[in-house]
Design a protein around this nucleic acid. Structure first.
Lengths: 219, 219
DNA sequence: AATTATTTTTAGACTAGCCTAAAAATTGAT
DNA sequence: ATCAATTTTTAGGCTAGTCTAAAAATAATT
């Protein structure tokens, strides 16, 4: 049996180590879990005892196949619940994360799979992040930060890098949801901001920060 | 903040004490929670400290208004999730309880209320039990155990007393789901079993136990 | 009413998960 | 290569929640 606390640590390790293939350090885990390094060390020992991580003192950790499977299932559940909350219950995309953090810990294989079917086997969540299927396979998407588009190039909004409420609400305000078509009109050399046409009509000024945190698929 | 363990105790106290208006004893709570009397005493102290129960040593406990509100909200969440699992995800009525036990602990008022709306504000769960509304009000139903019907009387199945899988699966097998019309044909004096017509055609032999655990609304 | 049986509480111990403060190991800089 | 800075681990302690065994209170029986 894996406790909720253990599950959350596995997710943190996944998020950190899987990003670059390099092992997750104690401090990095403590930062994402908002706890102390000492607590992390405690938990790493427990997870290593259960063969969910490969742990060498002072050397950071990597997930074992078992640990990776559990982390992947958690991400699958989290993102499916996010789709449910948005599509079925009508929550906004900046409201779904916290609830999904709770719902992802509900145990029951049949539940996840039925939910998946009910939602029509979505491949991406409301933030554009890929949803692993029942076998843990990911469908990665060809996407780049908006900042890489050259003037004249067009793309479609497919996801975000920053998942904060502040960013998501700002995007809502700008009308920049998933699926919106954008065209890079001009890059301002002075501050790296960009003039962009959205949805074929609105013209927007976007800061460099926004352009770095918004993913588009070029078309 | 109320922990999941505390929530479960409040539900148990509600289930025991609210049934007869009499206070719940330590042993009764231990039995429904599948734990020891010592653990119950510990928890009762904590709940009393939080003013969720009125606790007098050796005298059993009653819920305070705060405790009753929390218990009612839990039952509301539990039963709404049960409706969701059955109606939307297609689970059978003997499979929904365990999952709802987990889902009921997910925190978030907006979630419950949106779920309620999404399901069309149902008044009864898949077992025929009433679902409290957002203000904690119950819609009680006029129903009697099938065993009380006289030969010739008719009724509609509205709920069950026994929630066990064994009973629910047997009812499925007999075709006795909620809403099915039944007519009492004959009571067998020898063993108190009954000959019943279901859905206007099938003739069934039901033991006294079944007749006691099945609720009907006479029409 | 006194004794026995039952119920409930207390006492003490255990685990999971967290903390702070101090020690140990590693990394970086000269 | 040594010393300083940083990171990580250890040591010890805390709370919530559970347990067993023993003590105390209540209920039942004669």
């Amino acid at each position: 049996m894996v406790s909720q606390a253990e599950e959350n640590y596995l997710k943190a390790v996944f998020a950190i180590s899987e990003k670059e293939g390099k092992s997750a350090t104690t401090n990095a885990i403590a930062a994402t879990m908002q706890t102390t390094a000492a607590s992390v060390t405690d938990m790493l020992k427990r997870l290593a005892d259960k063969n969910l991580i490969a742990y060498e003192k002072y050397r950071g950790v990597l997930l074992t196949p078992d640990g990776r499977r559990i982390a992947t299932e958690l991400i699958r559940k989290h993102r499916l619940w996010e789709v449910f909350l948005l599509e079925k219950l009508g929550f906004a995309w900046d409201e779904v994360h916290e609830l999904a953090e709770q719902l992802e810990h509900v145990q029951g294989d049949a539940l996840v799979d039925r939910l998946d079917a009910y939602l029509g086997y979505p491949k991406y969540d409301p933030h554009g992040d890929p949803i692993p299927d029942a076998q843990g396979r990911w469908t990665l998407r060809q996407q780049v930060p908006l900042v890489t588009l050259q003037p004249g190039e067009r793309g479609t909004v497919t996801g975000v890098q920053d998942h904060s409420s502040a960013f998501l609400q700002y995007l809502d305000q700008l009308g920049l949801g998933l699926g919106v078509e954008v065209e890079m009109l001009e890059r301002i050399p002075y501050d790296q901001s960009a003039r962009v046409r959205a949805a074929g009509k609105t013209e927007l000024m976007l800061s460099e920060k926004v352009c770095q945190n918004l993913f588009v698929k070029t078309n």
